[in-house]
Amino acid sequence: MNRIDRLFQSGKKDILSIFFTAGFPHLNDTVEIIKTLDKKGVDLIEIGVPFSDPMADGPVIQHSNQVALANGMSQKVLIEQLKNIRKETDIPLIFMGYINPTLQYGFENLCKKAVEIGIDGFIIPDIPLDVYQKEYAEIIKKYDLRFILLVTPETPEERVRLIDEVSSGFVYMVSSASTTGAQQNFNETKQAYFKKIENMNLKNPTLVGFGVSNKETFDAAAAHSRGCIIGSAFVRALEDNPTIEAAAESLISKVRGK
């Protein structure tokens, strides 16, 4: 069974998904970061495939992309680093990147490689719904991968339904009109939006991302979804802590509140 499906079907609540940028802070940290997060009880990992022009990302992830590329990270290098990852861990893994590098590697080629090394799905925020349906949905199906689409507070209700119909694995609920990065709190407007989506009873489970960085934001979002995705706060922790282990511990204790 696809590992993403397995996670959600297990009935687990308060799912914690962590994003990191491959190649940051050091080129060869990828495998150790994955193993550490797995060991610390994280449920799902999103591996950021760096891009020179990440237009949906805030300053922290932009910076990590730049450093990763300067360190020599590329899709080829990343796939090579991960070729034995399934001997190390069974945690669900997702590639999160942008369309341009994906196209240069070749969408189908990348899917083929993903299956070979044990990646479970993709998030590519600049592939919109209609393009995905027309050009890529068939390929994703052929390789039995998951393709996670995003909904935002600006997405009208009928379109949320359509996205839910087409998305697989889960639906990524963007917390607010923003790029990635920490926010102080999730106010009533945001919570009303989480609640609205929750009450739509989508066929896919949802995870909330963008702006989740501590227990307060995690709990507010997880109350109306299956859990949260944390990116910028972990990328910053990797910079601020001496080791990967210390970064993971500090982030997880901040979020889980223990």
Binding site: P125, V131, E154
Partner: peptide, 12 residues
């Protein structure tokens, strides 16, 4: 051509 934009901009 086309419009390859994140979901947040789809409405605009």
């Amino acid at each position: 051509g086309g419009a390859y934009v994140p979901e947040i901009l789809q409405k605009n």
